[in-house]
Design a protein around this nucleic acid. Structure first.
Lengths: 317, 317
DNA sequence: AGGTTTAGTGCAACTGTTTGCAGTCTTGAA
DNA sequence: TTCAAGACTGCAAACAGTTGCACTAAACCT
């Protein structure tokens, strides 16, 4: 049988409320009593039941984290950091995967609402209207999306994209292709408008493309036709696929064309050539998101991105 | 304020117990009453409070999943599959990361114990003694480890390793190096004993090595010295690092030496050359583990591994 | 017609904690 | 010495459900 607060109370000769307080408000109980209760609790192997506690306090000490696809290499570092931040304050973390389905997103938030103190929603696919309604049921923080009434954590891709194009320009590339992501993607737009602002380079836009390796692979032909010597890809997966596609076309990277990705996922670091990329602070975002949630502040924060130069970029022939 | 079972009861003119039953034992309530209660509940936006339910029933409908490192590419597919399996039966999943620390493992299980109906423990680092004691507090299923009294899901690396070495032998390699993992690793031993059983190849063991890219990189020199033309690496990360190290030494893969990895992680699929590897059924393992947990069966299952031949292996020069 | 089952519902106790209120006992100050 | 203020601690009512038991009424059998 599980040992409860009553067992501890009986065994240490005090009332249950005293036992309760030694755990949830230690300063309210006499030092001697407290230590006696604690040792008895230790002996009996007592651990407070969080569900019961949640019932009265309304706080569960649980958080929810919803991502589009756990297996997409972009997310694990974010999940890991969020988990670490949560544990640090003694919170537990539900992790959920929507499989890119907006409906699952809504469903999950509903299901979580009674069971968590807040949820962090990563790159949500649902409409603003839906999210705003949901935000009334449970506190939110949204990563990578602006949402009225919710705390948001943004990563400044625009800045990174500009750095990337400037890097290419600095190497001497005059014509650079932008291999975009899916139509209507907020990120894709950010990248594009930022890239367009760099003087001295002619930008040719190739897209929309699926945000995957296959998407990049499929764009290789058009990149060659464009005559661009430098490429900024929607993300690392696209960049890696593109490099492979270019290889099949007989084009070397970075010899014939330079390509830079965005995200800085692990496969990019391991790939050959090692990918030059815009590092997204996913870990920082995950950590910050849970901090905002726990402290219940409704700020909207923007995180810096930076350029990581590796081996997939060089001066043009 | 949140709407409770009592609100629904009042609004539909029945007792709370009837409302309770329409949700937890629908067959016990008259069809007409049931539908009335349901529509009222819908109107009011009622959702059962799982924490409260857990208090009386003792079942939380939550599961815990503990892995060594969320950001290690080996785990995300497993986590994703476990999550999907859990959702399918309306369970939620806590995910936790031990950062490779055995102490964190124990701590997490303790913390979970009151809050979940079971936990799946992936490649645990704790001692059997500790785990067996913990198994009394909460049902377990362990992946990748034999443990008395707990359901276990094993992946048959040995079989895969044999296939890999046979593949190399079939290509004509007579001398193959085994780049092992950390000393005392169960997996490492499995691989070795299986590899030794393949006739017609001379096996040279190189190790122990850290189970990382750097570990593989560092072993390149010794691989060259060994004179082996084929290599089986402890895992894909090691294989990838090794390929890079060999490259730095002027050795081409698969031209000069063939290498096969183990795990089939995403970076291996994306790498150039694409990695020949032993595919571990991590997704199946995750799914199976939660199924075992939910059905409370204490079986010990073994999952098949298979060889995926890609571009990092070829006949020797 | 009378007895027995059965379906449906209500009652109230219980799950493990928290917490506002009230009581007791010291302690310090006037 | 008296009174007020603390410091502890106990009491009991929540929190949101579930469930064994009892009760009623209808249906079913002889």
């Amino acid at each position: 049988m599980t040992v409860t607060i009553r067992d501890v109370a009986r065994a240490s000769g005090v009332h249950v409320s005293t036992v309760s307080r030694t755990f949830s408000a230690p300063h309210m109980v006499n030092a001697a009593t407290r230590s006696r209760v604690l040792t008895v609790a230790e002996e009996l192997g007592y651990r407070p039941n969080r569900a019961a506690r949640a019932l009265t306090t309304g706080r569960t000490h649980n958080l929810g984290l919803i991502v589009a696809d756990i297996a997409n290499p972009f997310f694990p570092p974010l999940i890991k950091a969020a988990h670490a931040a949560a544990r640090q304050r003694d919170y537990h973390l539900f992790v959920a995967d929507t499989d890119e389905e907006p409906a699952a997103e809504e469903e999950l938030i509903q299901a979580f609402s009674k069971q968590v103190d807040g949820v962090v929603l990563c790159s949500p696919r649902s409409s603003n209207k839906v999210l705003e309604r949901l935000a009334e049921r449970v506190p939110f923080v949204v990563i990578n999306r602006r949402l009225r009434g919710a705390a948001t954590v943004l990563m400044d891709v625009g800045h990174g994209a500009r750095l990337a194009v400037e890097h290419l320009a600095g190497l001497g590339h005059r014509r650079v292709a932008l291999v975009t992501g899916p139509a209507g993607s907020w990120t894709s737009d950010e990248i594009r408008t930022a890239a367009e602002q760099v003087p001295g380079v002619e930008l040719v836009v190739i897209g929309p493309n699926p945000p995957t390796e296959r998407g990049g692979f499929g764009a290789a032909e058009r990149v060659r036709e464009s005559g661009a010597t430098g490429v900024l890809a929607y993300n690392d997966l696209v960049a890696i696929g593109l490099i492979e596609g270019l290889g099949d076309l007989g084009l070397e990277v970075p010899g014939d064309v330079s390509v830079v990705g965005i995200d800085d996922i692990v496969p990019g670091r391991l790939n050959r050539p090692k990918l030059t990329t815009v590092a997204m602070p996913t870990a920082a975002a995950g950590r910050l998101a849970v901090d905002l949630l726990i402290q219940e502040v409704a700020a909207t924060t923007s995180l810096e991105t930076r350029l990581v130069v590796r081996d997939s970029t060089a001066a043009p022939r």
